[in-house]
């Protein structure tokens, strides 16, 4: 175990991981080009690389496994149909797929949560996420509009949280651990380094990579714009 707080060149694993990240993005671009030319095998590879995280986000939002599976199917059908319109300079394939999945997920949510205008619908504070998600997915109302929270704002936050949770779920533990310690346990980078027994430089490198990945996916999927809108509206 390396002494904590010791600045030094990041170990080889991080250099490799960084290079792999770049290669992933480039490989995805090549995949999309092949998909645009009708290569089904390329679509299969793209599916294997991205389907799990899309499902993970969608099922958290919808609380309905079958509906989430439909979202995944629709997303890759859209990739197949519109691969030619993908612009790698605008963002990664992962972010593009998240944007499609977000729209499909919200379509499901709108259809499932269509509700009467006059039904008593107060969501109590002691209701859990699970219960709320069950109510949403089954088309049951979750609020009567009397609270301060705008439904669109709630949906924005829920989708952002779903994306973050899905990405964390599929993130390598070496990247997830320092992020969770910083954001969940509120530790500084130095404290994270002590806790994990890593050099501070390693903690910073891995945290940075995880943060950049999350930001890119939130930004590319449109979730960040929604959150910024909420943030601006709150002022």
């Amino acid at each position: 175990m390396e002494p904590a707080g010791n600045e030094r060149t990041p170990p080889r694993v991080d250099e490799v991981a960084s290079r792999v990240d770049d290669e992933r993005v480039q490989f995805d671009r090549e995949l999309v080009a092949r998909i645009a030319n009708g290569d089904e095998r390329a679509l299969g590879v793209a599916y294997d690389r991205h389907a799990a995280v899309l499902y993970a986000a969608s099922v958290r939002m919808l609380a309905d496994p079958l509906a989430a599976e439909e979202v995944v199917q629709d997303t890759f059908l859209a990739l197949w149909s519109h691969a030619g319109s993908f612009d790698g300079a605008q963002g990664s394939l992962a972010a593009w797929l998240f944007a499609i999945a977000r729209n499909r997920t919200l379509d499901h949510l709108r259809r499932a949560s269509r509700r009467p205008r006059t039904e008593p619908t107060t969501a109590r504070e002691d209701e859990t996420d699970d219960l709320l998600e069950t109510r949403l997915a089954s088309g049951m109302p979750v609020g009567d509009g009397s609270t301060a929270t705008d439904p669109a704002e709630t949906v924005s936050r829920r989708w952002a949280a779903a994306v973050v949770r899905a990405v964390l779920q599929t993130m390598p533990p070496l990247e997830r651990a320092p992020l969770e310690l910083a954001y969940d346990a509120g530790l500084t980078q130095q404290e994270v380094a002590v806790r994990l027994g890593w050099p501070v430089g390693t903690v910073k490198t891995r945290t940075r990579r995880g943060l950049l990945r999350l930001r890119e996916l939130l930004e590319g999927s449109g979730a960040l714009d929604d959150l910024l809108e909420v943030q601006r509206g709150a002022r």
């Binding site: 993970a56 099922v59 958290r60 609380a63 995944v72 973050v164």
Partner: peptide, 22 residues
């Protein structure tokens, strides 16, 4: 700041589906 708020929001409550796989 919005990204940080999203991460804090996600981690502030238990994940209802920690193993969300088909």
């Amino acid at each position: 700041r919005a990204t940080a708020a999203a991460i804090r929001g996600a981690l502030a409550s238990p994940d209802p589906r920690p193993d969300a796989v088909p």
